[in-house]
Design a binder for these strands. Structure first.
Lengths: 135, 135
DNA sequence: TTATTTGTTATAGTTATAATATAACAGATG
DNA sequence: CATCTGTTATATTATAACTATAACAAATAA
């Protein structure tokens, strides 16, 4: 597993986990249909409680990134990922607003911010370039 | 005051307040040297506790956006705003990483995200276009 | 059948943060 | 002197995050 948690961070563990699973999907390391570890095994692997893993799974399931079958366990949604919903766009704009405000105040130009955005986007896709299967 | 709080929001009140003051600076509604209301009067105005206002002021003071004089009270830092520090860039990259990951998974292209970034940046500067002085 | 693993639910306890309510202090203002 | 300023201290309530057990129903494998 490529998950690394910072137990000292202010951001909740379940959020870190959900974010990293999402990053795994974005990079191509995880693809639709891929199975995820059971809540118990992943919890043991990471040294955290099973409910914390379950909460991360629930968040991703709620948004449509995961499916939970009584048979197959937890898998990346085989029907594909959810699209750019209005709710997501609202969330995105709201978060960007705060960041853009501070960036502007600190003297970062519009294009510098946009370029940083592009750079980060690239890094994400780059991190899973080979399109590895298994593991 | 242009501050509007959502007491039902999950984001802390003091964070909302700090964010909106920052947005006020970004828009030009607040400029270096401008005075801010006292913690007590702003708290009464917003219907919240003085400690909540104080915490917002402390956060902004800590980052160098505000100065507190025993005489003049709280003012927007007259020596100008802090620049793009390494710490700020790290924070920015970290937050952008999460947003970019979900955006990518949902099928938003690199340029769509960058364009949204530019759009939000514009809205911020636009909201205080006239360069109003006083109130 | 039995045994195990799965996600899920329930309950309880701890810790930390957010927000409030008072109160008091020292420095500056009128 | 009285008032207003930021600041500090203490206490309380509410909520979120995390953990610890325990149990259940459905599926799998012996």
């Amino acid at each position: 597993m490529f998950v690394e948690l910072d137990l000292q961070s202010e951001t909740p563990i379940y959020t870190q986990l959900a974010d990293q699973l999402l990053a795994g999907i974005a990079s191509g390391a995880l693809r639709p249909g891929d199975p995820l570890p059971s809540v118990r095994s992943l919890a043991a692997d990471l040294g955290i409680n099973l409910h914390t893993v379950n909460k991360a799974y629930q968040v991703l399931k709620q948004e449509g990134f995961l499916q939970v079958h009584r048979k197959r366990g937890v898998v990346i949604n085989p029907d594909g990922m959810p699209g750019v919903t209005a709710a997501f766009q609202d969330r995105l704009r709201h978060q960007l607003r705060g960041m853009a405000a501070e960036a502007a105040v600190r003297g970062m130009s519009q294009e510098e911010l946009a370029e940083l955005c592009r750079s980060v986007y690239d890094e994400i896709r780059q991190s899973g370039e080979g399109g590895n299967r298994d593991e």
